[in-house]
Nucleic acid binder design. Structure first.
Length: 114
DNA sequence: CGACTGACGCCGA
DNA sequence: CTCGGCGCCAGTC
């Protein structure tokens, strides 16, 4: 019930990913002050309330791969959302080199301040 | 309490 | 590129 602290940090961090850009699970974990705990990010997303409108589809694996199996409904939906923001998805993956979010740490400190 | 399970990640073979 | 193995950790059973 009150384990919300970590989840909230994660959700809040993901909210900062700008449209047209993506981030990886590990990246979000680090920025949320939870280094090495990428799995928690996935966990947090799976239990994220609809009301928060968390842009979960902007979070990918460290390889740029969509975390869901190719062809799955989830994968298709995620691909759709991304392409809607002009993020190119090829073979269930995105080229991080071109679309990975590179936040300004100073600004993050201002917006997140844990 | 132990075993298993993930929307993960990194390294070595 | 594919596997296997290990680290990580909150939940579940």
């Amino acid at each position: 019930m009150l384990n919300l602290t970590n989840n909230q940090k994660i959700w809040k961090t993901i909210q900062l990913i700008p449209s047209g850009k993506v981030a990886t699970y590990g990246q979000i974990a680090d920025l949320s002050g939870l280094p090495g705990r990428a799995r928690l990010v996935g966990k947090a997303l799976s239990s994220a309330p609809q009301e928060l409108n968390v842009p979960w589809y902007r979070v990918l694996r460290s390889t740029g791969q969509i975390a869901f199996p190719v062809g799955s409904e989830q994968s298709k939906k995620q691909t759709g959302y991304l392409q809607q923001e002009n993020v190119a998805v090829f073979n269930n993956r995105v080229k991080l080199k071109n679309f990975q979010w590179q936040p300004d740490l100073g600004e993050l400190l201002w917006k997140l301040e844990f």
